[in-house]
Simulated assay, not measured.
Amino acid sequence: MAAAAQALSGTGLLLAAAALALLAVAIGTDSWYETDARRHRERCRGFGHKRSDPPGSMSAPSSHLPLRARPPRALLPGRPPAPAPAAAASAALDSHCGRRFNSTVSGLWRRCHRAGYEPDSEELIRKGVIQRCTAVKYHYTSSSLPRNLPINITNTIRQDEWHALHLRRMTAGFIGMAVSIILFGWIIGVLGCCKQQELMQYVAGLLFLMGGTCCIISLCTCVAGINFELSRYPRYVYGLPEDISHGYGWSMFCAWGGLGLTLLAGFLCTLAPSLNTSRASVQKPRQENGAV
C-alpha cells in the first residue's frame, strides 16, 4: 500500500507540472478568442462599399443587416405594392459595411491581426503604417468612447466599459493566483515525497484544489467578459455581423486542460496519504488476572 501511495503522489505531481505548463502556454499566447472576417470583407468589397475607418484598424463591431434586399414580389390583386428595394439596400449596406472588421486573435495581454488572413492589412503592417498587435487595456481611458453620441448613451457605454474592465482584471488576477498556488503546492508536494511526509502531500493536494478553484473563476470570468462585450449597448457599435466567424482559440483550451489536470492532481495527492498503511499498528498484550 505504501508503494501505491507513492505512485499516486508521483502521478499527481506530474499532472500538476503538466497543468503548470499548459497554463503558462495559455497565459503567454494570444489565441483565447478568434474572429474571422474574411467572408464579411469579401461580401462588402463585392458591393464596392467604401468604409470610413482607416485601413487596418481593429474597430468595434457594428450592427448587422441583410446585405441584399429581397426582390420585390409580384403584385397580386388586393395586395399593396412592396416598398422600393433601393433605399432598403442602401441602408443595409451602410449599416453592415460602414465599419471595418478585421480577423483578429485576442489574449490576456494583446489583440493582434491574424497573419495571412487579409493581404491589405499585411501590406500595411509590413510598411509600418499599423501595428500587428495592440495592448489590452487594464486601466480606464475615455479615448475609447465613440464620439457624437447622446449623453445617456455615453453614460451607458462608460458604465459598461468599467464593467468590462473589472471582468478583464478578474480574469488575469485569478489565473495568476492559480498559477502561484499550484506552483507552491507542487514544491510542497515534492518535498513531501522526498521526506516521506504524508501531511505535506495532503497539503499539496489541497493547494492544487484551491488553485483549480481560482482557475475556474478566471475562465468563467473570461467567458462572461467575452459574452458581455458582444452584447454591449448600443448594438450597432459593439455587435458582430452574422457573417463573421468567431469563437474560442487553442489558448483557451490549454487553460481548460490545465484546469482539468490540476483538479485531478489535487484528487490524487489528497487520496495518497489515506492508502499509506506502512506503519504497523502495535497492539498491547492483554493482561490476564494474576499475571505479572
Rank of each mutant, 00 (worst) to 15 (best):
L65Y: 02
S103L: 04
H64Q: 15
S103A: 10
Y117Q: 15
P83I: 10
P54C: 12
A92R: 08
G78L: 13
L23M: 12
K127D: 13
G56A: 08
D53I: 05
V136G: 00
A87H: 11
A82R: 10
S52W: 14
C97W: 00
A24V: 09
R79A: 14
R73L: 10
S52Q: 15
G46D: 03
A84M: 15
V25I: 13
F47G: 11
P54N: 07
A74E: 15
L20T: 00
G28I: 15
A88E: 14
S62A: 10
R99T: 04
L22H: 07
L20I: 04
P71E: 11
T134V: 08
R99Y: 15
E34Q: 01
S121Q: 12
L108P: 03
C97Y: 00
S9G: 12
S31T: 14
L22K: 03
P81Y: 08
P77K: 07
G46M: 12
V136I: 08
D36M: 07
V105G: 02
L75H: 05
L15N: 02
P77R: 08
K50T: 11
S90L: 10
V105A: 04
S95A: 14
S59A: 02
P54W: 06
E34V: 02
G116A: 13
A21K: 06
Y117S: 10
